[in-house]
């Protein structure tokens, strides 16, 4: 095997090597601490994870958390898109909405969570929390994506009397799509994290958050880490799906 080939193999598998090193450090640390309650060994956590996956409650919890994540995500995405387009088309709207965006960006996550617990039910407050936190991020991303489109190209299209429908479908959408998908990709796993945090505090039934909380209350650290691993895997899978959509969309744009 030549050197270049070896190098390419190492590069290709470098993420796996990192995961391996991480698990190795974890294993060494667990042996050093030697207290299951504080840091269980990786094998125990994987065993716990397998036991979780084979149970029915795991899937209802994951389903519940995902449906709340998607609802919150959809609300914030739609709201941000509508307002960003409106603000881009009519500048005074952008100015008028700017305080709202600033407030929703500056408001501490914890106070949103605590307030919504008083106002809403345990099933709905994670949704409100996720949409309130995701909205300002999406809004600024979308708005700047729209503003980054080359004005000259649009002016030219107008000059050549290209129809409004074509300007939208062939200029605006293809131009903002990559950055919109980028922010969706980073937002989608962040959103799952927020929903889980909210579920812990809201004591949401059938959720990953409450399952983690119950593991914690019962000092079942292995199960808490197993749930954590599951959450990481789910977030990664979601990001991967968005990445695939992005690749597909880029191809479509070129075609």
């Amino acid at each position: 095997m030549n050197k270049a080939k070896l190098k390419s193999i190492i590069v290709r598998f470098s993420p796996l090597i990192t995961v391996g090193v991480f698990i190795l450090i974890w294993y060494i640390a667990a042996i050093a601490v030697d207290i299951e309650l504080i840091l269980p060994r990786p094998a125990l956590v994987f065993k716990e994870l397998l036991a979780l996956i084979s149970g029915k409650t795991f899937w209802t919890a994951v389903g519940g958390t995902l449906s709340r994540s998607f609802t919150g995500f959809a609300i914030s995405f739609a709201l941000a898109m509508i307002l960003a387009v409106a603000g881009f088309a009519i500048k005074p709207i952008h100015r008028a909405f700017s305080p709202l965006v600033i407030i929703s960006r500056a408001i501490p996550t914890m106070s949103v969570i605590l307030l919504s617990l008083i106002w809403l039910t345990s099933q709905t407050s994670p949704i409100l929390i996720s949409s309130l936190i995701m909205f300002p991020m999406f809004y600024s991303d979308f708005y700047s994506a729209l503003n980054n489109i080359d004005k000259g190209v649009i002016d030219m299209a107008k000059l050549y009397k290209v129809g409004a429908k074509d300007i939208v479908t062939r200029l605006y959408i293809p131009n903002i799509l990559p950055s919109v998908l980028d922010s969706v990709r980073s937002g989608i796993s962040f959103n799952v994290k927020i929903v889980i945090a909210a579920e812990v505090l809201a004591q949401t039934r059938q959720s990953m958050g409450i399952s983690m909380q119950i593991s914690r209350v019962m000092l079942d650290t292995a199960s808490l880490l197993a749930w954590t691993a599951a959450a990481v895997a789910i977030s990664y899978a979601l990001e991967l799906i968005v990445e695939l959509i992005k690749r597909f969309a880029v191809k479509w744009r070129r075609a």
Binding site: V21, I25, I28, A29, A32, V33
Partner: peptide, 19 residues
């Protein structure tokens, strides 16, 4: 370098656990 990093991390964890 990679092996060195692993050793340092492990040593850090050991001392942390020991104290």
């Amino acid at each position: 370098v990679a092996i060195l990093i692993v050793i340092i991390a492990a040593a850090a964890v050991f001392t942390f656990a020991a104290c």
